[in-house]
Nucleic acid binder design. Structure first.
Lengths: 222, 222
DNA sequence: CGCGAATCTCAGAGGAACCTCAGAGCGCAC
DNA sequence: GTGCGCTCTGAGGTTCCTCTGAGATTCGCG
């Protein structure tokens, strides 16, 4: 997950100076960068080569940026796309999202923000999905809800973190100490673990988490 | 464009057996079906809720089918209407169409033909570009009004922009920062986001937008 | 069965996040 | 100019989350 060595990035940007700057920046960050100067070329590269993420400028010759996104999505390409958009009207800024882009950055932008968003994009797209199986129900990580019953059940941040851990390692037995270190910030808050197990049980039913007396807790009834 | 989720269909049919059969058929076809057994009820539902298409029988108690169409059109409702009729004379047909119905099917009819005509009706009428689904209601972007409740609710420009963004991405969670960058011009107006969420909730009900504590906001009841 | 240890349950403190709303500033229409 | 509606600010009140701690309950072993 940490190893972002050699993620392949396609940059579609017509402005020479900006293109140059960005491609060097991305390279310095460890990306393998492919550059296209217009929409046609971008489309061609995207269709003939594999990329992990794309950065596309809105104002492009030949094919406009948002159209390019649309065409790519129409071709079934699901690679995450970040759109660079000039500071315009609200519609301008939102249109990229509607076309199927995952994220957008408004120019002029902070370099650090752009890089952070790229990392977030890759991370988000890497971990398989936002859903974790809970038997009958599932946990929607991004919206922190458990869905599948009559009404969705909302979880707090901690509750969600804890449940995530259990759900992604259904057979593992976690000691209180494991959980304290993995989920809870504070070095010494031994009681908090028990409390949150209790909260989850209260919200989701006693069976979600099993107590292994003397050892710790485990995902229940998997 | 994005949301392929169930077109809402209102069926007004007094004959119990036929009503039952049709509503099940439409549901199986993927429509969200509302049923009324007489003209009064049909009128009431059409005025208080939003539908994408209506199927109305001519021979109705209380208010006759064609009269119902006329009343609906008089109320400014432009939802496409398909009329079912037992009689098939030219005059009948003309009367229904004059009243404002879009299409006409004579009983006994072929199921497939009925469905095909419904699809055609929806396709033709899909000026979805100006409409965004809000569950029971919809946002008319061009007039900046939310329609479908008792009385249409007028929104200001900002309110409309914000709601548009939520409505076109019902599952996405937007951070305050996302919203600030996308909807609000000013780089730093962190409080404005909260204020406009508050305005929308005050006008449209608390549930239109969900708070995800510590993360941001999301379209409510998705 | 009886006892200590482990676990469960829950009220509440403290702080962060959020909601509510009055009002100032601005632009536009008359 | 005057009035009105829209946008955004900022302050105060409220709600929610997190974690603590203490009493009640259950567990496992002799």
């Amino acid at each position: 997950m940490t190893a972002d060595r050699g993620n392949r990035l396609l940059l579609v940007e017509d402005d020479g100076k900006l293109s140059d700057l960005l491609s060097r920046l991305f390279t310095a960050e460890g990306y393998e960068v492919g550059v296209a100067r217009d929409g046609h070329n971008g489309l061609h590269q995207a269709l003939t080569s594999r990329f992990d993420v794309m950065v596309i400028d809105r104002g492009l010759p030949a094919i406009e940026g948002v159209d390019l996104v649309r065409k790519l999505r129409a071709q079934g390409i699901t690679t995450p796309i970040l759109v660079l958009t000039a500071r315009g009207t609200t519609e301008d800024r939102v249109e990229g999202l509607d076309a199927g882009a995952e994220d957008y950055v408004v120019k002029p932008f902070e370099i650090d923000e752009l890089l952070a968003r790229l990392r977030a994009l890759l991370r988000r797209h890497t971990d398989t999905s936002t859903r974790l199986n809970l038997g009958e129900r599932y946990l929607d990580i991004s919206s922190r809800r458990v869905v599948g019953g009559a009404a969705p059940i909302e979880l707090s941040g901690r509750e969600s973190q804890l449940l995530q851990l259990f759900a992604s390692h259904p057979t593992q037995i976690f000691t209180r100490d494991d959980l304290r270190r993995l989920v809870f910030q504070d070095a010494d808050s031994p009681g908090a673990v028990d409390t949150y197990v209790y909260y989850l049980r209260r919200k989701l039913g006693r069976d979600v988490i099993r107590t292994v007396h003397g050892l710790g807790y485990q995902m229940g009834a998997a």
